[in-house]
Design a protein around this nucleic acid. Structure first.
Length: 306
DNA sequence: AGGTTGACCTGGACGC
DNA sequence: TGCGTCCAGGTCAACC
C-alpha cells in the first residue's frame, strides 16, 4: 500500500539517515523480476559512490549518488555536463509490500531481502519485499541524449531537474487547478480508474483515490470527461488535503518502518470509506458500498457521493 | 491510442 | 490442526 504519502515519508526518513554516506558494498539476491536494470549495472553504478539525496517522485524513491573524485562533488561553474555524467539515480519502487530499511549490520537480515547497500559507517540500507512487486533500477540520465542546449533559462539547479527522473505523470501536490482539469478532458474511463492512471497523475493509489473522491462528493464510477470544472476543482482539493494530512501523520511514525527490522504496518489515516464496506458513513450514517472498478475494490458512500 | 483485463507474487483471513 | 481457496493491489503486457 505504499502510495505517495508513505513513499514521501520513507524517502525523507532514509535521506535524514544516509545522506552524505559512501556506499562501500552492494549485494543483491539475484531474484530476476525485482531488477528492472541488470543487477551488474546496479552494482557497478552504485559501488563507491556517495549518496547525495533521497527524494520521492510519484511512488518511486529516487536515490541520487555521485562518484567522488570526478566532477560529481563540487565542480567549477559551467561544468554541469560533467556533473550530470558523474551522477546517477537509483530508483526504488516499493510495489505492494516493499520496505527500505536502514539497519545496523548485526540486526538479522529479514526474509525476502533483495538488495543491501553497505555504507561507510557500517550501517546497511536494505530493500525487503516479500511479494516481489517492487522494482529496482538505474535511471539513465537524459543528459546524454539531450540536444546541445536545452531551452534558455537559468542554469545550475534547474539543470539537475531537467535531466533527473521525472516520473510517468504529473505531481498531485503541485499541479495547478487548470492543468488538473485538463488531464481528464476527453477521458471516457471512470474517474476512479483515471486517478489510478500513473501516466496522468503519479503517486495516487487505491486508498487515496477512494478517500479523495469521498471528500469531493463524487461517485467513483462517473465518467472522467463528464465531471464539471467545479467537481474537478473539489477533487483536486480533496486529494491534496488527504495526501498532506497523511504526510503529516507519517512524519511522527517514520522510524517504525525505516528503522524497524520486524514487519510493521504503514501508518493509517482514519479512512472515511476505504475498506469500510457496510459500516456507517462518518458524515451521514449510510452504509458504505464496495464495487469493483478497473479491477480494484472501490468504496464510496451512496448518499454523500453523486 | 484509449480502455480493459488478467498475470505476477505471497501472506493472511476464512471455511470446512 | 490442517488444508484449500480467496483476496489484497501497483504495474505491465496483451488484447479489444
Amino acid at each position: 500500500m505504499p502510495e505517495l504519502p508513505e513513499v514521501e515519508t520513507i524517502a525523507n526518513g532514509v535521506q535524514e539517515r544516509v545522506r552524505g554516506r559512501r556506499i562501500v558494498g552492494v549485494w543483491s539476491s539475484g531474484r530476476p523480476q525485482v531488477f528492472k536494470s541488470p543487477e551488474t549495472v546496479i552494482v557497478d553504478t552504485l559501488a563507491g559512490t556517495r549518496i547525495e539525496s533521497v527524494r520521492r517522485v510519484g511512488k518511486t524513491i529516487v536515490m541520487t549518488v555521485g562518484r567522488p573524485g570526478s566532477a560529481g562533488e563540487s565542480s567549477p561553474a559551467g561544468d554541469e555536463d560533467a556533473d550530470a555524467a558523474a551522477r546517477s539515480e537509483f530508483l526504488i519502487h516499493l510495489g505492494m509490500t516493499g520496505r527500505l530499511l536502514v539497519s545496523h549490520p548485526e540486526a538479522p537480515l529479514p526474509a525476502h531481502t533483495h538488495a543491501v547497500l553497505t555504507l561507510d559507517d557500517g550501517r546497511e540500507v536494505r530493500f525487503v519485499d516479500p511479494r516481489r512487486f517492487g522494482r529496482l533500477s538505474i535511471h539513465a540520465p537524459e543528459s546524454a541524449k539531450r540536444p546541445a542546449r536545452s531551452r534558455g533559462g537559468p542554469r545550475g539547479d534547474l539543470d539537475v531537474a531537467e535531466t533527473g527522473y521525472r516520473g510517468p505523470g504529473r505531481e498531485p501536490l503541485t499541479i495547478s487547478p487548470d492543468e488538473f482539469i485538463a488531464l481528464f478532458r476527453g477521458r471516457r474511463t471512470p474517474i476512479k480508474a483515471a486517478l489510478l492512471n500513473q501516466s496522468l497523475l503519479h503517486g495516487v493509489g487505491n486508498i487515496y483515490a477512494d478517500e479523495a473522491l469521498f471528500r469531493a462528493g463524487i461517485r467513483p464510477g462517473r465518467q472522467a470527461a463528464r465531471l464539471t470544472r467545479a467537481e474537478l476543482t473539489r477533487l483536486r482539493e480533496g486529494l491534496v488535503e488527504v495526501l498532506r494530512h497523511a504526510i503529516r501523520l507519517g512524519g511522527s511514525s517514520v522510524s517504525d518502518y525505516v528503522d524497524a527490522d520486524g514487519v510493521r504496518g504503514f501508518f493509517q489515516v482514519e479512512h472515511r470509506v476505504y475498506q469500510r464496506t457496510g459500516e456507517p458513513c462518518r458524515v451521514c450514517g449510510t452504509a458504505i458500498r464496495r464495487i469493483t472498478i478497473g479491477g480494484r475494490s472501490t468504496h464510496y458512500c451512496p448518499q454523500c457521493q453523486r
